[in-house]
Design a protein around this nucleic acid. Sequence first.
DNA 1: CGACACATGTAACACGTTACATGATTTG
DNA 2: CAAATCATGTAACGTGTTACATGTGTCG
Lengths: 204, 204
Amino acid sequence: MSVKHAVLTLLDEQPLHGYGLKAEFERRTGGTWPLNVGQVYTTLQRLDRDGLVRAHNPAGDGSVVYEITPAGHSTVQEWWGGVVDRQAPTRDELTIKVALAITTPGVDVGQILRRQRTASMQVLQALNRARTQVGEDLAWSLVLDRLSFDAQAEAQWLDHVEATLRRQGPGAPPAAPATPRPDSAARTGGFDDLSATTAPGGRR
Amino acid sequence: MSVKHAVLTLLDEQPLHGYGLKAEFERRTGGTWPLNVGQVYTTLQRLDRDGLVRAHNPAGDGSVVYEITPAGHSTVQEWWGGVVDRQAPTRDELTIKVALAITTPGVDVGQILRRQRTASMQVLQALNRARTQVGEDLAWSLVLDRLSFDAQAEAQWLDHVEATLRRQGPGAPPAAPATPRPDSAARTGGFDDLSATTAPGGRR
DNA sequence: CGACACATGTAACACGTTACATGATTTG
DNA sequence: CAAATCATGTAACGTGTTACATGTGTCG
């Protein structure tokens, strides 16, 4: 939904053509996520199909400019007004990998954790290096900060897992045996949906 | 790639049928990410198509068991041996939204940040509540920790953005043209700790 | 001239996801 | 018996992503 909403938001400010959207997106997000031009056009086609934008051809030549429609404008307003949903977190490959690793015999969990931690640190280094080359651009700087926060959280978690495993059974991988005939009392379904809870977090 | 690799990994331990894979996945990952059964079957079809698994039918009835192939086993080994790539981070909707918001006139960035922060805190609460109900399951507990780390990093970043904006131009948001107002003096990253490991980097 | 950025698209694929149809088996 | 769970699948869609074809304009 990222590209879709970004394109729509940019068109909510001013009409643009495909190539300009690519350039504008990369400029506004600091060039951290290069956007394939082809994807802009496919996205525009789908937005057009859904009635959120409209292709416009000022001159008779090949130049095509896209404009947002009222429906598209509403969508943008809703996007600004709402929050990005984090209730149902996306399956994360690393987390799943570690979760499976600690319950799989014959897998060197420690090695996985250490290697991944090295990768996290390399990302952090690259981010710090990039930051020195940016400096002035506010949006770009904040994007880099975000990636940095994430990489740090990842590294911390990897350390946390390693420490936890050392504290618990390093030589005895417990974890309920995998019965070929599943007879366990499985209870599943994400965590609470927290409908009516208000934030006590004491923000600011 | 998460579901694909997870299914493959489970089959690398023992042959299973579709429904069993769903159950086993949710058991091993703590049920945080419920897995639609239909998705297991589509994934199995694609893995079969790619020669990584093979459908097997012990009895003549409708029961179908999937086994991993040598090629599938190799894939799993490579997965364990490699690292999850974080070099080219996935476009994150929240980050893009904030990046666009601070360069879009007429958008209340502060409101976006505060609302999103509330959402992050609610997620944290739900995670804490869920953790009290788990306790024993190691894998599940670590998965919850991961989600918790992420939510905290997100909240911290939101605070960081708000503080940065307050420090910089709260009444003078740099707008459309690529002229990001040269004033940023305070570079308070706070995360310059990196140990060992040299990296080539080469992003972009 | 030739290289390169600008510009517009199409085709095809990967992965995730849901909705639906269908039947067997278990169990209250 | 009826309901729930187990079990197998298909169809269809959404989003992201890349590879390719094609052409214009500029500039060294």
